[in-house]
Amino acid sequence: MLALLTSPEYAIFSMALVVMLGIGTIEAIGLGLGHLDVDADVDGNVGSDSLLGWLGLKTGLPVLIWLTAFLGCFTLIGFAIQQIATAVAGVPLHWSIAGGAGLIIGVISNAYVSSGLARLMPEYESTVIDTDDLIMRRATVLEGVSQRGHPARAKVVDQHGQAHYVMVEPHHDSDIIAQGESALLVRRAGPTFFIQPDSDTILRPL
C-alpha cells in the first residue's frame, strides 16, 4: 500500500492528503489558524463575486476549512480516477492527466461540499465580520509601545466576542500608548489601525 501511495502516479494525491492532515492537526490542537483575519482586497465586480461564489469561497467558511475540504475532494477523486483507470486499462493514468482531471472535478465538488459545511456550521456565517467593523472599538496594546511610525500589537474584541490581533499606531503624532493601555480604533490604513488613547478621546477631535 505504501509503495502504491508513493508511486509517481499517486504521489500528487498523497501529498495533498498529507497537507490536508497537517492542516487538520493544527486546527485540532487549537492553534486557531482557521480564524486568522484574511484581508484580501478583491475588486467588487460581478465577475469576481461570481467566481468566488462558484468556488464556494463566499459561504462564510474560514479559508483553511475551505482549503481542507478542497484537498479532501482532490485526494478522494484522484485516488478514484487512478483505481478506475487501473481496473479498466490495467495501469493508472500519468500523474499529470489524473491530477488535471482531479483538480477540475475537485473544484466543482468542493463548491457543493463548502456550501454543505456552511449550512452545518451556521455560526461561521453569523460571526464573520469585515475588518473595518473593528473601527470605533477599543483595543488593548499587548506588546511594545505604540507610537507614530512604530506600530504595536494590540487585541480588540468584536461584537461576537471574538478576539482579533492588529497592529496599531497613534492617530495623533504626539501620542504614545504603552503596553497594557487601551485606546479607541478610529481609522485604518491597509493592515494598520490608528488609535486614540482613552484618556483624551473626548477632549480632542478625530
Rank of each mutant, 00 (worst) to 15 (best):
L31V: 02
L31C: 01
L33F: 06
G34R: 06
G34L: 02
L36I: 09
D37F: 10
V38Y: 15
V38R: 15
D39A: 14
D39L: 10
D39G: 14
D41E: 13
V42D: 13
V46Q: 15
G47V: 00
S48L: 03
D49V: 14
S50K: 15
L51C: 03
L52W: 08
W54E: 04
G56L: 07
G56S: 07
L57M: 11
L57V: 03
L57E: 03
K58L: 12
T59P: 07
G60R: 13
L61P: 01
I65Q: 02
I65D: 00
W66L: 04
A69K: 03
A69Y: 01
L71A: 12
F74N: 04
T75S: 13
F79Y: 15
A80H: 06
I81G: 11
I81L: 13
I81H: 07
I81D: 03
Q82C: 07
Q83K: 11
Q83F: 10
I84R: 14
I84C: 12
A85Y: 05
V88E: 11
G90L: 09
G90C: 10
V91L: 11
V91W: 06
H94V: 08
W95A: 13
W95R: 11
S96G: 07
I97G: 13
A98W: 06
G102E: 01
G102L: 07
L103M: 12
L103D: 00
